[in-house]
Simulated scan of single mutants.
Amino acid sequence: MGFITHCLKSARIDLGRCRLWVLGVLCLLAVCKVGAQSSVAELTELRMDRQDSALVLNAQLKLELGPAVEDALVKGLAVHFVADAELMRDRWYWYDRKLGGVSRYYRLAFQPLTRRWRLNVSSEPISNSGLSSTISQNFETLSEALGVIRRQSGWKVANASDLDADGHQYLLYRFKLDFSQLPRPFQIAAGNQADWNLVISRSLRLSADMVR
């Protein structure tokens, strides 16, 4: 009798281990599937143009949201993006000097009742309680809403008079999904998911013709 009981216990333990192993494999397959369709954020164009007395930024992004981000949006989570550009001047004896800059803040959300996408845009950080000070647009599809974020043109970064013809200036551009705007528990859960890791950083040296 003791032998049979021991065998039954061993069988249960083996069955439990087998279930855990199968569950682990299924989880791994799910992660691989998500990874194959992960979000994409790439800078396809970055340039500075001189318009009259201003220096303006023109950038184009390839931005696609992975299934984890889209699923969170459809379930009611707002996602924030930040793009900023700074015009800097080299200084060998100290930190580089900032000559000018521009920032854009985006809040993307899905509206279940209307089945439409809302995008809020502002030059200042956006809070859920301060949406009235933003420019708001509604779109039928997610792709249309992302199209506004992808095209960043005509942003004034600095005045042409701020440039030093004898100096060396460069543009520092950054774009990211603002993780700090997500609910704290969600930050922890999504921290290791590639879908949420959207960061771009690029520098652009100004040509001699630009500073004349």
Rank of each mutant, 00 (worst) to 15 (best):
G2I: 05
T5I: 14
K9C: 14
K9R: 07
S10N: 14
L15F: 10
R17C: 15
R19D: 04
L20F: 10
L23C: 10
G24I: 01
V31I: 05
V34Q: 12
A36I: 02
Q37F: 12
V40M: 11
V40G: 03
V40E: 05
V40L: 15
A41G: 12
E42K: 14
L43H: 12
L43Y: 00
L43P: 14
D49K: 08
D52I: 07
S53N: 15
L55V: 06
L55C: 14
L55Q: 04
L57T: 06
A59P: 03
A59D: 09
Q60V: 11
L63K: 13
L63S: 03
L63F: 12
E64L: 06
L65A: 08
V69I: 15
V69P: 03
E70L: 03
L77W: 01
A78D: 02
V79W: 03
V79Y: 02
V79N: 03
F81L: 12
A85T: 11
M88G: 04
R89F: 06
D90V: 12
D90N: 07
R91W: 05
W92S: 10
W92Q: 09
Y95H: 09
G100W: 09
V102T: 10
Y105P: 02
R107L: 03
L108W: 01
Q111P: 00
T114K: 06
R116V: 14
V121D: 09
S123T: 06
E124Q: 08
E124V: 01
I126F: 01
G130C: 02
I135L: 12
N138Q: 10
N138I: 15
F139S: 00
E140P: 01
S143R: 14
S143T: 13
L146F: 05
R150T: 02
S153R: 11
S153L: 01
G154P: 06
V157G: 13
V157Y: 09
N159F: 05
A160E: 09
A160G: 08
D166I: 09
D166M: 11
D166Y: 06
G167N: 04
K176P: 02
L177M: 15
D178P: 01
L182F: 00
P185H: 00
F186Q: 02
F186K: 04
N192I: 08
N192A: 12
N192M: 07
Q193W: 12
A194M: 08
A194W: 10
D195R: 07
D195V: 04
D195G: 10
D195Q: 01
W196S: 04
W196P: 00
V199P: 09
R202Q: 15
R202W: 02
S203Q: 15
L206V: 04
